[in-house]
């Protein structure tokens, strides 16, 4: 299953490294990354593949949120379908 990981935070060094490490730890492959700065605000969107991830979606979502909070990052994961439904006919 593919999903979208979104990360929002105050910009600082090492955010991408931190998040990708979390994902690698759970056997999640990153397919694509887009990152922008909106003023001082860091926004990153990642398309990831969950095929090899052993956690359930709910467990993974909780894991990312908790680990994100430890570093002051707002991390969410959502199934890709919601974006496809809204923006693709």
């Amino acid at each position: 299953m593919k999903a979208i990981v979104s990360v929002f935070a105050q910009d600082s060094k090492g955010i991408i490294a931190y998040v990708t490490r979390l994902l690698a730890e759970k056997e999640i492959n990153v397919l694509d990354i887009s990152q922008t700065l909106m003023q001082e605000f860091f926004a990153m969107i990642m398309l990831v593949d969950l095929s090899d991830c052993a956690l359930s979606f709910t467990e993974l979502s909780r894991f990312l949120q908790e680990k994100g909070q430890e570093r002051g990052l707002d991390i969410h994961i959502q199934r890709q379908d919601i974006f496809d439904a809204m923006h693709r006919v």
Binding site: K2, I4, D32, S34, T36, I45, D84, H87, R88
Partner: peptide, 15 residues
């Protein structure tokens, strides 16, 4: 972004 999605659309949905 490839895979048919672009980050502008994703950000719009998230907002």
């Amino acid at each position: 972004m490839s895979y048919l999605l672009n980050s502008g659309e994703i950000l719009q949905t998230i907002q």
